[in-house]
Design a protein around this nucleic acid. Structure first.
Lengths: 334, 334
DNA sequence: CTGAAAGCGCTTACAG
DNA sequence: CTGAAAGCGCTTACAG
């Protein structure tokens, strides 16, 4: 079944499509269409249930009112929660979101960028990976608003919104030290991206500032894509071997593996052994004992991203890149 | 900066845009374009990085290669995991996903359907709510493929994919009974949708088949939108008052509230008190003791949805509605 | 106060 | 073997 076009409405109302278009786009007053005509046309539109074809509109105007969201994995709760907030805020401003997951693949990420490009999305929100700098630069050269989040790419100058990973990590370690911990371990992953390396830097700096020597044996770098069982085994080895009295897990899934590891070797969290997880998780509140965690301010991150996008969208001139670093919050439990 | 159009390529190659179009769309052979021309054009396309404008293509052909996904809330892990799987499978077949969350609002759901309609999405995947039957019926009348999942709408005849909630619930209660439980409670929500009421029906039937009388006092219907604290308090009241020796939680977030409730009143899960949660959650594996759960086969659900969509998309004729009910799995822990 | 016409970037039936 | 032209459904500069 064919849907109605602006022409059908024009014929029914006995006016030109120009007039209908003006009315649909709220330019009736400005174009001084008579009240009578406006009413007649609006009535017909309402009765017929006519909806303008956005595809045609996009082709003509050059914008789609769609924002492309490129993330690592929508099923990761950090991203799905951000996606939800972004969707919500964008929706209120008349924008829709089209998303895709990169699965940490450079090829897929490049493909997605091309795909979004050919779909003429109005703006890009990207949680990037190394290796797509050139593609992003091209996007910006073409005048597209681009906001990176979660992870930054140091080699290009892009607008960026993210949490202050360095400080959050620093504060967590400081907290351990203030509790009198001496052998503080870090369990992290072996990928070389800023949001992860900053957590290591914060760890190192906090130790240094307290006069504790950095001990490489206390830092476990888990291989990014390995089986969870392997991860659990490595964590157990770390915790059994040493007089470790505190651990910072650099991601929430590492913390979850870590908690499983502890359970298996029956090592208890308590006065003589403390744990903090980077990025909160529902399981932490429920765990016995409850697990302390660093919370990224998702709401604020999403709001900042959307604000920057809208700013760039509404200014004809190209805005300079802007970096917003938002403090993360250490939530101590039990 | 303007991006290249098919015309630019045609001019550069010194051929007509018709020829370029045929080559782009793999119809060169069929239209018997000479090898020399094909090579020349392909070279120019590759060098220039030209990507066809999908908007123009959509306007012309009437399809967008976009599938609209309408769900309750992308940040709910059940939906985000399904979304991930659907995205993946759709992507491999050349389709993109555009999603939006309804937040259980009828108005928003209707708005989303209209929005997707005006964007000319090729197909709809919807986790519906009551009150949008008419809108969905119209979609189908217009010849759009529509697949409902998770929840069905009994009043219209639509293709549907979902887990066998009745049986999963039935098996869980049977399992309690086989363990010798006598006072089995059900904590559910008060919304009147099939996927929830079926869980209650399964509960009732299992009791009946075992000759246990149904006791209304053991069924707690939580108000859908209330504060979690209120929920926790109600669960505590249920569990303190009665000789309850087993509980089935009808959703995973109810189970999480329930576990918090138990923790506060220090009621232990063990030989004399058993718990099962509907829909698994990472926290359950980690909990002490580990919590048994019903797992919906997400992979299978996603795969079935995509298969049905592609079937409908590739058949010119309207296919009859098809319902696929997939067994859920009870995972017993500890 | 209103309309005829060009054009956005494609695809495709038709013609040669 | 290849191209001119119509048309998808809009918006908007221009004209009256």
């Amino acid at each position: 079944m064919k849907s109605l076009s602006i022409k059908d409405i024009a014929v029914k109302a006995n006016v030109s499509i120009t007039t209908v278009s003006f009315i649909i786009n709220g330019k009736a007053k400005e174009k001084s269409i008579s009240e009578a005509v406006i009413e007649k046309v609006e009535k017909i539109i309402a009765e017929s249930g006519y909806k303008p074809n956005q595809i045609a509109r996009s082709l003509r105007t050059g914008n789609s009112n769609i924002i492309g969201l490129i993330i690592e994995d929508i099923s990761n709760s950090f991203f799905s929660r951000i996606a939800r907030l972004i969707e919500d805020k964008a929706y209120k401003r008349g924008y829709k979101i089209i998303y895709s997951s990169t699965e940490n693949s450079v090829d897929k990420a490049k493909e997605l960028i091309n795909m979004f490009k050919s779909r003429k999305v109005d703006a890009y929100i990207i949680s990037p990976i190394k290796g797509i700098e050139e593609d992003i630069q091209m996007l910006m050269n073409d005048g597209n608003p681009v906001i990176l989040f979660d992870r930054n790419l140091p080699d290009i100058s892009t607008s960026y919104v993210g949490a202050d990973h360095f400080n959050a990590s620093y504060q967590s370690i400081k907290n351990f030290i203030d509790q009198g911990k001496k052998n503080i371990a870090l369990v992290t992953i072996d990928i070389n991206v800023a949001q992860i390396t900053e957590r290591l830097e914060g760890y190192k700096k906090a130790l240094e500032d307290s006069g504790i020597e950095y001990n490489e044996d206390l830092v476990l770098k888990i291989h990014f894509n390995q089986e969870e069982n392997e991860t659990i085994a490595q964590i157990q080895k770390l915790l059994q071997h040493k007089a470790v009295d505190a651990v910072l897990f650099a991601t929430n899934y590492l913390a979850i593996s870590g908690l499983k590891a502890l359970k298996q070797i029956d090592k208890k969290i308590g006065d003589d052994f403390a744990v903090i997880a980077y990025d909160d998780h529902e399981a932490f509140e429920l765990h016995t004992p409850r697990i302390s965690a660093i919370q990224q301010p998702l709401e604020e991150i999403a709001e900042t991203i959307i604000k920057m996008i809208l700013n760039q969208l509404s200014s004809k001139a190209k805005l300079p890149a802007e970096e917003v670093i938002i403090p993360a919050r250490l939530v101590l439990r039990d």
